[in-house]
Write a protein that binds this DNA or RNA. Structure first.
Length: 276
DNA sequence: GCTTACCTGTCG
DNA sequence: CGACAGGTAAGC
């Protein structure tokens, strides 16, 4: 489900709501959702902790606590719903609820996930965050990388095809299947092209376009193709702006039907005439 | 690299 | 009924 823009939308919504709130005892409807530490330690270590800020690295939401960090990855169908006191739905109304995180004031954060791929981690400090959660995660494409850095990273991966490279969270963190296809379309780059074939102008344009598309995605509240919801349960609107993703056989603005192929193991949409 | 696995649901 | 879904880790 969520790529960088969707996680960033949730981050921006939640930070003002949660800051200085104190967690009560978590309720684990599905304990295997907790990736680290043990379910028992997660419950006892989170209770009583205060939220200081909320950050993001790639697709990871990072809730900074007075002591440690609560990290969340939504994977394909996870969502984080915020509820004020009393209106909290029980598992009866949401059969996919996996974890409930109540606060001492009666409000709560609920982690729901149909496909059960999403995970939560609770680590004690930034060193643990890096070594346990973010070990294979590269720099955030929006926050941690200037154009020159991006060009240097590209030069280290010249054999890689662009689609696979942008999806690789160890290269840069945040791009997913939808936004990658949209960026390559806008840049007129074929998904199978190797990084070494890009001119300097194309590389700079790719960097700028990635940032533009992600910023637009955030401004539109994310993309709801099927399952994505923000922390209020609302859909995003960027799907109406997609040029190629999900549009197989529809006509590109050049008149050519959009094609779909499998690249890097993922469904990939592109215009065979515009993208070379 | 590619394939498979993890899950549940939807679409054709 | 099979194919596929916004993600990623693990195994060749």
């Amino acid at each position: 489900m969520p790529e960088l823009p969707e996680v960033e939308v949730i981050r921006r919504e939640l930070e003002p709501l949660l800051i200085e709130k104190t967690f009560a005892a978590p309720v684990l409807h599905m304990p295997s959702t907790i990736a680290y530490p043990s379910a028992e330690e997660f419950v006892s270590d989170l209770a009583g902790q205060t939220v200081k800020s909320i950050a993001r690295r790639g697709k990871y939401l990072l809730i900074n606590l007075a002591r440690g960090v609560l990290a969340v990855h939504l994977r394909m169908t996870g969502n984080l719903l915020y509820t004020e006191a009393a209106e909290a739905k029980g598992p009866k109304e949401d059969r996919y609820r996996r974890v409930s995180l109540p606060f001492s004031d009666g409000s709560a954060l609920h982690f729901s996930d149909m496909r059960r791929f999403g995970r939560l981690w609770l680590v004690g400090n930034d060193h643990e965050l890096q070594s346990i959660v973010l070990r294979r995660i590269g720099p955030d494409i929006l926050n941690d990388l200037c154009c020159e850095d991006f060009l240097q990273l590209l030069d280290k991966r010249e054999q890689s095809r662009l689609k696979a490279l942008l999806l690789d969270q160890g290269f840069t963190a945040g791009m997913g299947n939808i936004y990658t296809d949209e960026c390559l379309f806008r840049c007129k780059i074929h998904p199978l092209r190797q990084a070494k074939t890009l001119s300097r102008d194309e590389k700079e344009n790719l960097y700028a376009t990635i940032r533009d598309v992600l910023a637009e995605g955030i401004a539109y509240g994310g993309t709801t193709f099927r399952d994505y919801r923000n922390s209020s349960g609302a859909r995003g609107d960027f799907q109406s702006m997609l040029s190629v993703y999900g549009r197989k056989d529809e006509r590109c603005s050049c008149g050519t039907p959009i094609e779909k192929a499998t690249v890097a193991g993922r469904g990939t949409y592109y215009c065979p005439r515009c993208q070379k």
